[in-house]
Design a protein around this nucleic acid. Structure first.
Lengths: 209, 209
DNA sequence: CGCCCCGTTGACCTCCATCAAGGAGGGTGG
DNA sequence: CCACCCTCCTTGATGGAGGTCAACGGGGCG
């Protein structure tokens, strides 16, 4: 999307930063406009409700974008799921870069639309679906993300997140997620391989497919 | 954001279209890249799951943007909630306009980010919250949207959607929404005025506030 | 008037959250 | 090397929130 010179110029406007697993990049309410692109690792965007329960709003993969470029404060928490490397920009610096490079805003527009659709997909998934459908939908979605082509299922993959995080993402509890995985395995749809490994034995057996 | 000449030029690239209440603008899966801005009225973006239940992913207000500019097919249904007027563009025509007017992609980026946050807010709201919290959250959010300032509550407003649509948006049933409204009224938090009218008598009594 | 759609209310029952207990690594220190 | 602990996962028992089914009310319209 951007050419080499533009990329370099942009990189100079930001500053790289490393995060360890569990470290926080942004906190909701922080009165600062800043944003970042993820170079390696994985992040989660979360919000915490009044009774202290965490809800995962989005997972961020390398080349993903987080933060606020227009709003004066952060709307959500951003936390590293594993050791990660980012390129962080101040809000004004990034806004200036956008003015300077029209292609940048186009690229970002594209990516933001992807994020928007991912968010709506999650919304649809957690909407009226049963726990069974949510977990199977998440498995299929993660399998798709793990494969090279976006509409192809990876037969064998590792869950990028823990049971608890998966539960937080789906609006379920750890126990329910665990029960569903057990059920899918008993029914021969999947096979569990260690804590994180999943093999899709017969995806057609998963509800909703 | 755009100046007058740009606006006019853009308007010429599109074609205005009127929709009556309930008419469909786009259907999910349609293999066509097209998009539109809403001039007046209101739209809903929905997805229908396997068992035929509809889920409202977003409400679109005037100056809102819907459709696909990059993807080759429509991901969701878009339906008019009331009589509406739009300016419709073909995907390629709009992509060209974006190339031509850098400010357009910046403006659209801003709006898309707003949509993204709205979507995530809804995600957070429908995540782990109880039916009580969801309905009260929706009331407050609609009240905020109905007032002139975005962080101020309108004391008296009309629900832009029916009970059924509100239920579809919150992942609840009509009956539950109805029961919650009854409860809020009994507890003195709101007063119902006809089918659609709501008056916030004591917003502090609403859970979660 | 009679129909139809939308909303309300009640009775029941299902699904999932909650509470509780136990198992399986994996890391640390003796 | 083993004992210990800690975190993550699994499994079971129980109860409650909300979905489902059913009946009724009321306003708009032909």
């Amino acid at each position: 999307m951007l050419d080499e010179a533009e990329r370099e110029e942009l990189a100079k406007a930001g500053r790289t930063r490393k995060l360890k697993k569990g470290e926080t990049l942004f906190t909701a309410g922080m009165s600062e406009a800043a944003c970042a692109t993820l170079l390696s690792g994985a992040l989660k965007i979360t919000s915490t409700d009044v009774d202290g329960r965490e809800r995962i709003l989005s997972l961020v993969h390398p080349s993903g974008f987080v933060g606020e470029m227009f709003a004066p404060y952060m709307r959500h928490d951003v936390v590293a799921l594993g050791d990660s490397e980012l390129c962080v920009f101040s809000g004004p610096a990034f806004a200036e870069a956008i003015e300077r490079y029209p292609k940048l805003s186009q690229a970002l527009l594209r990516r933001t639309q992807e994020d928007l659709y991912a968010s709506r997909e999650l919304l649809a998934l957690t909407g009226n679906a049963s726990a069974e459908q949510r977990v199977s939908g998440a498995l299929l979605s993660i399998s798709r993300a793990a494969s090279d082509s976006p509409c192809h299922l990876a037969r064998r993959f590792d869950l990028p997140i823990s049971r608890g995080e998966l539960a937080d993402m789906l609006g379920l509890t750890i126990e329910t997620v665990s029960r569903m995985l057990t059920r899918f395995e008993r029914e021969g749809a999947i096979r569990r391989d260690g804590k994180r490994g999943i093999e899709l034995v017969d995806p057609a057996l998963l509800p909703l497919s």
